[in-house]
Design a protein around this nucleic acid. Structure first.
Lengths: 261, 261
DNA sequence: TCAAAAGTGTTTCCAATACACCCATGA
DNA sequence: TCATGGGTGTATTGGAAACACTTTTGA
């Protein structure tokens, strides 16, 4: 409630860049699956990406960083712009479900705010989309701020989203795949120490295909950016895997040139 | 003159999306070198990329297409969005040279238009940039429209440009390199028929490195998207090269999957 | 017959792939 | 001792790279 009031007053102060918004596709690696951070509006069935407006005095990258840290508490995130969505249909009147969701949200507002908020939402927005990589283990997701529920959702369970946000997510995944060789996924998505099979599963999740275990291990070790530590005793009745961590100096150089996959 | 009047009146009709612009990096292949289409404002030393504003009822891709065809007469161009530039410094007051150029342009306007035009130019713009690939041989560049001189400039001779346009060009070249495997450069940048060495030189120009002649020929021929035609008799005292053209059906499939280089 | 560039052939090397084999772990 | 997954070894294949050889052209 407080949040939406804030939004409206932002519209009235001359501090917002009109027609422009920012959306973030935040990737995390949980339980051997890629997840995305999604937000559900309370009392509706509508899901959305975390996003926000751009202020006149603000840089875009910083704004995207702020959007992510307000949800996750992490302020040191890795992010990249990947596309600007601008279709004429990008407004809340285009799809019936979005329109109904908007009505529900409007009903919660003080009457004098309803009209301007509606006008805000039915104009076409140009939205620059970012993909964000972060260590999901570090995140304490703020589950409920201002009537918005924030959750990690695995790629296979992504629901229907508001506006063209499904398209944005899909494009983000494709961007992630295409840029994979130039992204520091090892230091952004993985915890401090991890096993080789964990790391391999991450690659498999992103690429969407099976990789040979032996070849993966040899290739990664040959690249030389992993430091081997003690074994991890899981209690399972099999050989205990080593733990590894990233040698940042080596890794940064490799990522800049592009790690082949 | 007519053009700038048009701009200002556009500001006054409620048809333009504020704060947003579009810039195009148009690539062409001329005389064995990559060229970019640049515009020089008459009576100034300032160069710029072809660009324009976005109208409320217009899609971005179509707008970019229109910007290019208005300069080149070609309406069937291949283009891709590659980045949205949004720095707080993106306005004509930031650099001294830009500011002086703006004054020169303002002086040409009727007095009543000067103030609004200046205000238009000193606000920060968010600009979505496109790279465009087209067959330079087909182009009849319109050399002078509305006091703007339009020219092909080779990559090595690009002058200082307005705003952050040099950065935009550099990023476009990097994007071109990174996406090379997924771009139909063969059918967009090359003429209908061409020699193998011409084609190789294009690749070398984009990648910025030497390629082995024999290996290039074998690799390309093995991919199977080239159709061999008659020989080209140049009059030079050496073996005449074959002419080749693209087998579009094969090529489109290959480009979609990514041609390796 | 000669120089120059085009086309083709050959050799070497390394990385990707597909497995096979042995090792450690705890029930 | 046995099942399970982890680590390493090996044979095959194919493409990349470097370079040699042959062919065609017009002077």
């Amino acid at each position: 409630m407080a949040k939406q009031k804030e939004l409206i007053s932002n519209l009235h102060i001359p501090g917002i860049v009109p027609s422009i918004s920012i959306d973030c596709v935040v990737f995390g690696y949980l339980e051997k699956k890629l997840h995305v951070l999604l937000i559900k509006y309370k009392d509706t069935q509508s899901w959305t990406l975390p996003g926000g407006f751009l202020y006149e005095g603000a840089e875009m990258d910083e704004t995207a960083t702020n959007i992510v840290s307000s949800r996750t508490g992490i302020d040191n995130v890795y992010l990249n712009q990947f596309y600007t969505f601008s279709s004429l249909d990008r407004h809340w009147k285009h799809k019936k479900k979005d329109w109904e969701c908007l009505q529900t949200l409007l009903a919660k507002l003080p009457e004098r705010d309803q009209k301007p908020f509606e006008e805000l939402m039915i104009q076409r927005y140009i939205s620059t989309a970012y993909f964000v990589l972060l260590n999901a283990a570090e995140v304490r997701v703020k589950p409920d701020i201002h009537g918005q529920l924030c959750n990690w959702i695995s790629l296979s369970e992504i629901p229907e989203l508001v506006l063209d946000h499904n398209e944005i997510v899909n494009k983000a995944i494709r961007a992630l795949r295409k840029r994979l060789n130039f992204l520091p996924i090892g230091k952004t998505l993985m915890p401090e120490k991890f096993t080789m099979s964990d790391f391999q599963t991450l690659y498999e999740a992103i690429l969407g295909k099976y990789l040979d275990r032996g070849n993966f291990q040899r290739k990664i070790m040959k690249l030389g950016f992993l430091i081997r530590h003690e074994k991890l005793m899981t209690g399972a009745q099999n050989k205990a895997p080593y733990l590894y961590s990233i040698d940042h100096e080596v890794y940064d150089k490799l990522v800049a040139e592009g790690i082949g996959f």
